[in-house]
Design a protein around this nucleic acid. Structure first.
Lengths: 226, 226
DNA sequence: CTCGACCTTACGGATCGCTGACGGACGATC
DNA sequence: GATCGTCCGTCAGCGATCCGTAAGGTCGAG
């Protein structure tokens, strides 16, 4: 689902958190300290960072600051103390959420997913943009681009793409798409078929062998997130 | 059916509960105290924990809390007192159900199965997924996988599998399946036979000797939960 | 052993999705 | 107002896939 970087010097804590996040379908990176974390994020990227406040070398706050210099990746802080002061400091320094130790992994997973959801929505709301892999859709400008080069999408194609990008991984029947995108409660399903074909021509590398907008036989279509 | 961990310091109580649960087809682990229970759950895993409130060392509430740190396994509390206060405390601390001592083993078994059923439904509602052993079915994606590798199911096979997974352990006649899965009120029963065979080819290790989708002679078929 | 139930296999028809083409609608431009 | 271009929805043909049926073999119960 998303790539999460877990930074904690305690291997036990890391192990528990990592296994939990993996079980929930996330791609997880680990780091024992701030330096390693920064390098991992720079080299492999991360959609979210879970960061212990107390770290050997540069501490959590410093690491958070330096992470934010390079990217706007959301950060969840782990604080050993339940003190209000720490929370305030953490949030002021740019953490998106915080969890106090000892914490339940379940709660952490919930926070992670909540922050990811917020981040996705916030990004779309703030910039009016959706993206997936090398695909960028600007809802405000009503424009889409792939790997930097603009795509000449028609209005319908644009709407269809936006809807699919907002619901990645879910299979929709042609009737559902007709209803959700076209706003029709009945109609010719082949309308959808043809528009999917035309959209593929512009979005896929090889429209004959779709990778992102795949067909689910006997059902309909599904957007495959990169 | 499911793996249940029974935690009670009284060997007599354990023996009764364990034998009853075993008789109902469950796989049972035992532990006399909280520490042992935590270790057993960590090492062998459990689908449900039956936990005495009064335990030597860390008591039931503490053990429950620590169990929930590592996993979201459902918990049934055994409380010696019928007091409403204890019940409230237990439920607040995250127990999914409670049974007051003295209790009838039959009642406990009913509670266990009810909680397991609830847990399964809750998970499906939350994630849109069904699973059984190494089999995972994602209803949203309309995709199924076994041991991580996707299964190439046709639409009908998928529907059939989903229906069976939602009603594990229940034997259905071909006519019932024809009605429930195909939506027909009459039809050729051999249709079901053939689809069952094709599904077995993809779901069973050895389609000749089915283990999960077994035939009930003179009746029809039944899904055998892992 | 016998019979009925179940399994297995194969095949033709039906369904589904893809493709290319067409005409009408709409808007822009001149 | 006329012309042109673009976009849209429809349709028919085609290939691939899937589905249901039938026929023969196998297995289990009595």
């Amino acid at each position: 689902m998303a790539r999460v970087l877990v930074v904690d010097d305690d291997p036990t804590v890391r192990e528990v958190v990592v296994s939990y996040l993996r079980a929930h379908g996330h791609d997880v990176l680990e780091a024992p300290d701030g330096e390693t974390a920064l390098r991992a994020h720079r080299e492999q990227g991360a959609d979210l960072v879970v960061l212990d406040l107390m770290l050997p070398g540069a501490d959590g706050l410093e690491t958070c600051r330096r992470l934010r210099e390079r990217s706007d990746v959301p950060v969840i802080m782990l604080t050993a103390l339940g003190s209000e002061a720490d929370r305030v400091v953490g949030l002021e320094r740019g953490a998106d959420d915080y969890v106090t130790k000892p914490f339940s992994p379940r709660e952490l997973v919930l926070r992670v997913e909540s922050v990811l959801r917020r981040a996705g929505e916030a990004e779309e709301a703030a910039t009016g943009m959706l993206h997936d892999g090398d695909l960028v859709v600007d809802c405000d400008r009503h424009e889409a681009a792939r790997a930097g080069t603009p795509l000449a999408l028609t209005s319908r194609e644009f709407d269809l793409l936006v809807f699919l990008l907002r619901h990645p991984g879910v299979a929709y029947t042609r009737d559902e798409l007709l209803q959700q995108v076209w706003g029709w409660s009945f109609g010719d399903q082949s309308t959808v078929t043809v528009h999917v074909r035309r959209l593929r021509e512009k979005v896929e590398d090889d429209a004959r062998r779709p990778v992102r907008l795949v067909t689910v036989w006997g059902v309909g279509y599904r957007w495959e997130a990169a």
